[in-house]
Every structure is written in C-alpha cells, then in structure tokens.
Design a protein around this nucleic acid. Sequence first.
DNA 1: CTGAAAGCGCTTACAG
DNA 2: CTGAAAGCGCTTACAG
Lengths: 340, 340
Amino acid sequence: MKKKVAIRDVAQSAKVSTATVSRYLNGKYDTMSVATRQRIKETIKILGYKPNDVARTLRSLKSKTIGVIMSNILNPYSIALLQGIEEICSKSGYNIILCDTKESADKEREFIDMMLAKNIDGFIINTTGGNSDLINELSKEIPVVLVGRKIPGSLVDTIAINNQQGVYLAMNHLMEKGCQIIDMISPQPEGISPRIERIEAFRQFGQSNQQHALNISVHIVQIEDIDKVISVIQSLIHKHGMYKRLGLVAANGVVSLAVLKAVKQLGYAIPQDFLLVGFDETDWSSVSNPSLTVVAQPTYMVGKRAAEHVMDRLHSNEQSKPIAVELNVELISRDSTKVQ
Amino acid sequence: MKKKVAIRDVAQSAKVSTATVSRYLNGKYDTMSVATRQRIKETIKILGYKPNDVARTLRSLKSKTIGVIMSNILNPYSIALLQGIEEICSKSGYNIILCDTKESADKEREFIDMMLAKNIDGFIINTTGGNSDLINELSKEIPVVLVGRKIPGSLVDTIAINNQQGVYLAMNHLMEKGCQIIDMISPQPEGISPRIERIEAFRQFGQSNQQHALNISVHIVQIEDIDKVISVIQSLIHKHGMYKRLGLVAANGVVSLAVLKAVKQLGYAIPQDFLLVGFDETDWSSVSNPSLTVVAQPTYMVGKRAAEHVMDRLHSNEQSKPIAVELNVELISRDSTKVQ
DNA sequence: CTGAAAGCGCTTACAG
DNA sequence: CTGAAAGCGCTTACAG
C-alpha cells in the first residue's frame, strides 16, 4: 500500500500552509492570489492528492451524505424512490448511504443510530411505522423527510401520494365496468399509513355508494402465504360468482402479483371471473396475463421531491414550516378490467 | 441540538481515562478490572453515549463499511445481488454504501474515488467494464470482489455464473422442443463479460450442432428502443416463420421483457410463432403472458459468496490466491417453450 | 492574502 | 490494570 498523500504533503510541495490548501479545496478563491491557487492546483495534480472525507467530516461535521432508510428494498417501489433520490443528491454532490429495514422497527432504530454515528447530514425514510417518537425527535436535530409512509399527527416533512384519490379512481373504474361487488385484498396494516389510508378510503367509498347497491368488503391476508391468497380468491368467487360482476382491488404491487399467481393456480381467468385493479405500475404490468389495470403512483417523483426538500433544508437556515405533500396518481386501464 | 456526549464525558463521569473507555468500546475486557468495566458500562448507558464512527474511522483507518458499486440498480438482478451482500455484511457488523453507475465508466471511477476517500474497507463491484486497469490496481491495495461481470485476464477475485452452461441449457431445451432455427437477441456487448460469454457460447453451440442442421444467428439490438426490438422480431418471423420451428434466446432479463412487449404489439403469440427462453428468473416470470421459460441464475448466492469472500480477505492476513468462481444455473421450463 | 495553532473524537503504542 | 500523550487528516477562527 503506497503512502497516502495528505494535505501536509501538498502544503510542503506547494510552499504554503495546510490552511491555504484547505481554503483552495473548499473553493475559497476570493481570499487567495491567483499564483497560489494555480500552484496548489498543479501540486495536487502532480501528487495525485485526494482529500480524505473522513477527516473533513470529523472536522466540519458535514459528511455530504444522506441516509436513506427503506422498509423493503425488494419492492420495485423502493427502487423507483431511490432513483429519484439518487438523481437529486448526486446532482448536489451528496452521497447516499442506503439501508433496508425489511419492515423491522428494531433494525430501523439501529440504522438511524448507525447513520447518526456516521455524521449523516439528513435522512429520507420510508418508515416501518414503529419508531414514530424517535423520528419525531430526530427531525428536530437534523433534516428528515418521510417518503410514502406518514407518521400520523407528526410534523415531520412528508412526501406521499394521494391514496384516497387512488382508491376512488380504482373503484370508480370498476363501477363503470359494471361491478356491483368490489372487494379489496390488503396485507395487515401494521401502522403503515398507505395501507390504512387505502382501506379507509375503500370503506368510505363503499359507504357513499350504498344507494347504488354497491357491496364491498376488505380482506386482510398474509400475502407471503400463497395458500391464504388462494383460499380468499376462491371464497370470493364462490360467494359472488355468476350472479353479479365482481371487482377486486389489490392494495399494493405485492398483492397484485400474488393474486395473479393464485388465479393461475386456481385455473380462473381475469377479467372473466373478476376484474382486477392493482396499485403500483411496474415493468411487467403490460406483459402479465392479463395485462394489469393499475393505479400508477409517481414514485420516482416522490423520491425526487423528498431529496430536493432535504437539500433545501440543508441549505437554508430558516426553520421553514413542515410540509406534507400528496402527489396525484393516475389510473392506467388494461386487460384486467376489460369487459365484453 | 443538544450537545453530543463524547468519550471524554464518559471518561470524566466514570473517573477513568479516555484510553480505558476506548478499550471498553473495543471489547478489550481482558486488560480491565471487572469493576471498571461495569462502571463504564453504566456510565455509557446513563449518558446515552454513542461512539462517533467518523472519529474511529479516521483514527483506525477501518470504517466497517463495504462499498458496493452496481452497474444498473434498476435491474432486479442488482437487487438480488444486494440482498445477498447485505445479509452477510450486516451479519458481520459491516455497513454498505451503495452506488449506481448506470453503466457509466466515468461514474464508476468517481464512485471508487469517493469511496476510497471515505475509507471504505472493501469493494464489491458489478463493473461497467470500462475501468479494468484501475480495478486491477485497486485490488492490490484493498479487497475487491467482482460480481457477475469479469475483467478478462485479471486476477481480481470474481464470483460469477456459468454462462456457457446457461446458454447450452437454453439451446438444448429449444432443440428438444424441435427448434431447427435458434436466434439470440443481445444488447451491445460493450466489454460486459456475461454478454460476451453468452454470445460466444451461443455461436459455439451452433458450430457443434451443424450436423443437426441447426441454424443460428445473433442479433445485437439496442433494447431501450422498442421499435428496434419490434423490427427484429418481425424480420425473424418473416424470414423463418411457417417453415421451421423457431426458438429465441433473450440474452438477459431486460431483453426478455422487451421481447414480450414487442410480441404483444405485433400481435404475435408465444409459443405459437416462436419459442422463447430468457435469462434471469424474476418475480413475474410465472405470471407473464406467456409464462417464461428461463435460465435461472443463483444471483442471491453470487452476492452472498462475494460478501463472504470480502469478509475473509478482511479478516485473514495471508494473501490467499485469487479466486474465480462460476456458479451453476438451472433451466425452469414454462409456457413460452411449451409445444403441442 | 497567508500562516500558526487548536481541535473535531477517537485509538494506540508506551510507560508504569 | 490504567493513564498521559501523540496523532489520524482535515478546517477554522484568529492574527497579521
């Protein structure tokens, strides 16, 4: 391992103090003669000097790094978020350190501690929902933006989507296609705001459409267990089938996929046996069997807005008031709700 | 922002020196009285002390962090790799810092520099292929493991899969299904080893099966442009269709998806118009239209093995000799190659 | 326009 | 078993 060249080496070679080299590194050119500046520049090049970020961070308390905490990185949703975040951060010269809590509140806590220990400058969190108090406190010390998932009653900045709108779009679409019965399949809410909001909106919509003889129900299913999904689908069809047209809303992308798999195993067909609307546009929505009608979320934009907001907080001193953004969604109609 | 408690505060409260607290933090209990140890432990708890990683790293030159550089994080393949890497690293108390080069060799170089500046302990790289010399040098200074993509002739540790085996499995399968013509669609190789290896193996297989009247050709297509994919598919079918059974090998998951989309737009049907084998098992392979026969790579295992190897290098002093692992793949047969 | 010096929060020989 | 002291590589008031 060849000896690392440090700021002291540059200073010696360029016949200046380390303070001056440091000023150069930090772009403080106004307080520096052009000759000095040029000399330092060349010396750095010749020596191949690279500033040590760790030392800079220790001294300045700024790491130029944003901590991103995802609840489940296997979800394509997380990747879309990450894309938006990454684009903005790298544009502003910030790095990202990424963690996956796998929905574990304990891990979330550990990761937050670890990132604090690394002097992270700000957080973007798709929270498990299990550390509300901690995150509320955290946001008083350091910029924090929640993405996708809210903390109820919290003042932490949040960028999310309009789940009520999404559910209404889905249900309206199904009613227009002639469904008189609409069911929703959702995973256990477990304090995760979009799940709660979608279920809530679903029930509200059902209430307000009772006069149209709309019949709704929500099924909370453990999605990881395909057998449970299968038996729910089967019971749905047995209960309603034949008599009236049935519509199903899958509360997120994982549910959509599970429903498609279950239907395949059962030998049913969509949209013949029931219509299906999913949440989340994915790579494969247009090539699945059938292609999937979805409520498309602007996930990339959520990530982008979140990162922009962290940058704002980082670079403006005033305490702006907390924001709570809900981006609009849109419905993309495909074969899974095609009738006739 | 409340004042951070530092090691000095703990030392004062516990009536010991910072050196002793430091020893405690580093688990050097054998050179410490039980009483002292207990006192420090309690003091840390009371004060809520958290060691500052940045200072530790600056002093010890170990960051307990692995730099992971992916060529395209949008690819589900990358996520599977990451899962394997994450599992092993976190088990060993290492953090991950993740970057996405988006296939840009320039970004790859920048990220490597940035990570070095952060005193990363080791690298896991799914390389763009554009920094072979740099990475070769790098691996002399610090543990580096390449994943999925090799550097030709390099001695850098590499965990990849057996691409030749994958191609042979795909082509054998297609021949068994009666294909006399087999084409491959691949993106521009651009120095990316799996692409090169798959094309190479494809041609070799074609050569050695000439006596079976096997007719092969490779189409290099810019996959991002769906119109180009469409026109290739169309020309394939026009050229061969009707006369003989045609099989297509999609050189990776992105190609598979593009082919499915193109076929859909063209109004053709798989497997009626041609059989299709893809690379990479994905979430949706079983629910696409048609469900997809694929060469499944043990991607998670590649990531896991790579991380294990970095850990080995980190914790053993001897210079073990470079490794070059190729994991086996398997073929999963589904409707896209079902005949009769 | 520039430098000497202190210090960010740790770890680690060295000495006892 | 424990402490005093040096130092990791920077940045930043302060002084000139």
